[in-house]
Computed example of a mutant assay.
Amino acid sequence: MTEDVKAQKFSTLFRWFDQNGDGRLTHDDLQNMAEMFAGLAREDDKENATAMRNAFETWWQLLLTHGDADGNGQISRQEFITVMEANVTHPQHFEAAVLAIVDALMRALAADKDGVLSLQEYVRMYDALGIPPEHSEPAFRRLDRDGDGSLSHAEFRAAITEFYLSPDPKAPGNWLLGPFA
Protein backbone atom coordinates (compact mmCIF):
# COMPACT_ATOMS: atom_id res chain seq x y z
CA MET A 1 0.00 0.00 0.00
CA THR A 2 1.47 3.37 -0.96
CA GLU A 3 -0.18 5.35 1.84
CA ASP A 4 -1.22 4.35 5.31
CA VAL A 5 -4.69 2.97 5.91
CA LYS A 6 -6.19 6.09 7.48
CA ALA A 7 -4.76 8.35 4.78
CA GLN A 8 -6.21 6.03 2.14
CA LYS A 9 -9.66 6.16 3.78
CA PHE A 10 -9.49 9.94 4.19
CA SER A 11 -8.54 10.27 0.51
CA THR A 12 -11.67 8.28 -0.37
CA LEU A 13 -13.73 10.49 1.93
CA PHE A 14 -12.22 13.61 0.36
CA ARG A 15 -13.19 12.43 -3.14
CA TRP A 16 -16.74 11.75 -1.93
CA PHE A 17 -17.06 15.18 -0.34
CA ASP A 18 -15.51 16.88 -3.40
CA GLN A 19 -18.64 16.35 -5.47
CA ASN A 20 -17.55 18.72 -8.26
CA GLY A 21 -14.14 17.03 -8.50
CA ASP A 22 -12.10 20.24 -8.44
CA GLY A 23 -9.60 18.88 -5.90
CA ARG A 24 -10.58 21.36 -3.17
CA LEU A 25 -13.18 21.30 -0.43
CA THR A 26 -15.11 24.47 0.22
CA HIS A 27 -17.91 25.45 2.54
CA ASP A 28 -20.29 24.80 -0.37
CA ASP A 29 -19.01 21.22 -0.68
CA LEU A 30 -19.72 20.49 2.98
CA GLN A 31 -23.09 22.24 2.79
CA ASN A 32 -23.97 20.11 -0.25
CA MET A 33 -23.08 16.97 1.71
CA ALA A 34 -25.14 18.23 4.63
CA GLU A 35 -28.14 18.72 2.35
CA MET A 36 -27.73 15.23 0.88
CA PHE A 37 -27.77 13.76 4.37
CA ALA A 38 -30.57 16.02 5.63
CA GLY A 39 -32.58 15.03 2.55
CA LEU A 40 -32.75 11.49 3.92
CA ALA A 41 -34.92 12.66 6.81
CA ARG A 42 -38.67 12.77 6.43
CA GLU A 43 -40.03 16.19 5.48
CA ASP A 44 -41.48 16.69 8.96
CA ASP A 45 -38.25 15.60 10.70
CA LYS A 46 -36.66 19.02 11.10
CA GLU A 47 -34.84 18.04 14.28
CA ASN A 48 -32.65 15.35 12.69
CA ALA A 49 -32.15 17.27 9.44
CA THR A 50 -30.97 20.28 11.45
CA ALA A 51 -28.71 18.08 13.60
CA MET A 52 -27.00 16.73 10.45
CA ARG A 53 -26.57 20.22 8.99
CA ASN A 54 -25.15 21.50 12.28
CA ALA A 55 -22.69 18.60 12.52
CA PHE A 56 -21.45 19.23 8.97
CA GLU A 57 -21.02 22.91 9.86
CA THR A 58 -19.00 21.88 12.92
CA TRP A 59 -16.91 19.65 10.66
CA TRP A 60 -16.32 22.50 8.20
CA GLN A 61 -15.25 24.85 10.98
CA LEU A 62 -12.75 22.25 12.21
CA LEU A 63 -11.40 21.82 8.68
CA LEU A 64 -11.09 25.55 8.17
CA THR A 65 -9.67 26.38 11.60
CA HIS A 66 -7.17 23.54 11.82
CA GLY A 67 -6.56 22.55 8.20
CA ASP A 68 -6.54 25.59 5.95
CA ALA A 69 -2.76 26.02 6.09
CA ASP A 70 -2.61 28.61 3.31
CA GLY A 71 -5.68 30.58 4.48
CA ASN A 72 -7.47 30.45 1.13
CA GLY A 73 -10.80 29.20 2.50
CA GLN A 74 -10.37 25.88 0.71
CA ILE A 75 -9.07 22.53 1.88
CA SER A 76 -6.73 20.54 -0.35
CA ARG A 77 -6.59 16.75 -0.23
CA GLN A 78 -3.39 16.83 1.84
CA GLU A 79 -4.76 19.49 4.19
CA PHE A 80 -7.87 17.33 4.62
CA ILE A 81 -5.90 14.19 5.46
CA THR A 82 -3.75 16.09 7.94
CA VAL A 83 -6.66 17.78 9.74
CA MET A 84 -8.71 14.58 9.78
CA GLU A 85 -5.88 12.70 11.47
CA ALA A 86 -4.99 15.46 13.93
CA ASN A 87 -8.25 17.21 14.73
CA VAL A 88 -11.53 15.84 13.39
CA THR A 89 -10.86 12.33 14.68
CA HIS A 90 -9.55 13.63 18.01
CA PRO A 91 -11.89 12.56 20.84
CA GLN A 92 -12.58 16.22 21.62
CA HIS A 93 -14.16 16.72 18.16
CA PHE A 94 -15.15 13.31 16.77
CA GLU A 95 -18.47 13.06 18.59
CA ALA A 96 -19.71 16.52 17.50
CA ALA A 97 -18.41 16.41 13.94
CA VAL A 98 -18.90 12.80 12.86
CA LEU A 99 -20.92 10.73 15.30
CA ALA A 100 -23.57 13.45 15.60
CA ILE A 101 -24.30 12.88 11.89
CA VAL A 102 -24.53 9.11 12.42
CA ASP A 103 -26.87 9.46 15.38
CA ALA A 104 -29.20 11.92 13.63
CA LEU A 105 -29.13 9.81 10.47
CA MET A 106 -30.10 6.65 12.33
CA ARG A 107 -32.93 8.45 14.11
CA ALA A 108 -34.13 9.88 10.79
CA LEU A 109 -33.94 6.56 8.95
CA ALA A 110 -35.68 4.53 11.60
CA ALA A 111 -38.95 5.30 9.84
CA ASP A 112 -40.50 2.07 11.06
CA LYS A 113 -39.10 2.86 14.51
CA ASP A 114 -37.36 -0.52 14.80
CA GLY A 115 -34.00 1.22 15.28
CA VAL A 116 -32.18 -0.87 12.67
CA LEU A 117 -31.32 -0.61 9.00
CA SER A 118 -32.25 -3.46 6.69
CA LEU A 119 -30.13 -4.20 3.64
CA GLN A 120 -32.69 -2.38 1.47
CA GLU A 121 -32.73 0.69 3.74
CA TYR A 122 -28.93 0.75 3.86
CA VAL A 123 -28.56 0.45 0.07
CA ARG A 124 -31.25 3.10 -0.51
CA MET A 125 -29.53 5.46 1.95
CA TYR A 126 -26.10 5.12 0.37
CA ASP A 127 -27.53 5.31 -3.15
CA ALA A 128 -29.07 8.68 -2.22
CA LEU A 129 -25.63 9.71 -0.94
CA GLY A 130 -23.94 8.76 -4.22
CA ILE A 131 -22.55 5.34 -3.28
CA PRO A 132 -23.71 2.72 -5.80
CA PRO A 133 -25.45 -0.48 -4.68
CA GLU A 134 -22.60 -2.63 -6.01
CA HIS A 135 -20.52 -1.09 -3.21
CA SER A 136 -23.10 -0.72 -0.46
CA GLU A 137 -24.50 -4.25 -0.65
CA PRO A 138 -21.15 -5.97 0.06
CA ALA A 139 -20.38 -3.32 2.69
CA PHE A 140 -23.64 -4.09 4.49
CA ARG A 141 -22.76 -7.77 4.69
CA ARG A 142 -19.39 -6.93 6.25
CA LEU A 143 -20.92 -4.48 8.73
CA ASP A 144 -23.71 -6.79 9.88
CA ARG A 145 -21.46 -8.28 12.53
CA ASP A 146 -24.08 -10.47 14.20
CA GLY A 147 -25.42 -11.72 10.85
CA ASP A 148 -29.05 -10.95 11.65
CA GLY A 149 -29.73 -9.20 8.33
CA SER A 150 -29.87 -5.71 9.82
CA LEU A 151 -27.58 -3.01 11.17
CA SER A 152 -28.33 -1.78 14.64
CA HIS A 153 -27.46 1.75 15.67
CA ALA A 154 -24.52 0.30 17.62
CA GLU A 155 -23.26 -1.69 14.60
CA PHE A 156 -23.52 1.35 12.34
CA ARG A 157 -21.81 3.59 14.88
CA ALA A 158 -19.05 0.97 15.30
CA ALA A 159 -18.55 0.82 11.53
CA ILE A 160 -18.30 4.61 11.25
CA THR A 161 -15.87 4.74 14.16
CA GLU A 162 -13.80 2.00 12.55
CA PHE A 163 -13.72 3.83 9.23
CA TYR A 164 -12.39 6.99 10.83
CA LEU A 165 -10.20 5.63 13.60
CA SER A 166 -8.96 2.13 12.79
CA PRO A 167 -5.53 1.65 11.22
CA ASP A 168 -6.42 -2.02 10.54
CA PRO A 169 -6.66 -2.62 6.76
CA LYS A 170 -9.03 -5.56 7.41
CA ALA A 171 -11.54 -3.63 9.54
CA PRO A 172 -15.08 -4.08 8.15
CA GLY A 173 -15.84 -0.36 8.61
CA ASN A 174 -13.27 0.45 5.93
CA TRP A 175 -15.84 -0.60 3.33
CA LEU A 176 -18.40 2.13 4.11
CA LEU A 177 -17.71 4.07 0.91
CA GLY A 178 -16.81 1.20 -1.37
CA PRO A 179 -14.08 -1.38 -1.89
CA PHE A 180 -11.05 -1.01 0.27
CA ALA A 181 -7.82 -2.43 -1.12
Rank of each mutant, 00 (worst) to 15 (best):
Y122K: 08
A96P: 02
L119F: 00
A100D: 03
Y122S: 03
S136F: 11
N87G: 08
D127V: 06
P132A: 15
E137V: 11
P138K: 14
R142K: 15
V123E: 10
A96H: 04
M125Y: 13
V116H: 03
L129C: 12
D103V: 05
R124W: 11
P91F: 12
L129E: 12
H93N: 11
L99K: 06
L129V: 12
Y122P: 05
A110Y: 05
G147S: 03
E134H: 13
D146T: 12
V88Y: 02
T89I: 07
A96L: 00
G147H: 09
P91C: 06
P133I: 00
Q120F: 06
A96T: 08
V116S: 11
D146H: 12
A110E: 06
Y126W: 15
A100M: 01
D114L: 01
Q92P: 00
A104T: 09
H90S: 15
P138Q: 10
Q120N: 12
F94A: 00
V123T: 13
D112F: 03
R142L: 15
H135C: 07
L117A: 06
Q120W: 04
V88F: 02
I131Y: 07
A139L: 11
P138G: 05
A110Q: 13
S118I: 06
R145G: 15
Q92S: 09
L109V: 01
F140N: 06
D127N: 10
P138Y: 10
L119A: 08
P133S: 03
A108W: 04
T89W: 08
V88L: 13
R107D: 14
I131V: 15
A100V: 02
V98P: 00
E121F: 04
V116E: 08
P91G: 02
L119W: 03
L119M: 11
D114W: 04
D112R: 05
F94V: 01
A100S: 12
E121C: 07
L99E: 08
A97C: 00
D148P: 06
I101K: 03
K113I: 04
E134F: 14
S118T: 15
Q120T: 14
H135A: 13
D103L: 12
P91N: 06
R145H: 08
E137Y: 05
R141C: 04
D127A: 15
P91M: 12
R107T: 11
P133Q: 08
V123K: 06
V98F: 02
N87C: 10
A104Y: 10
R145I: 11
S136L: 12
V123I: 11
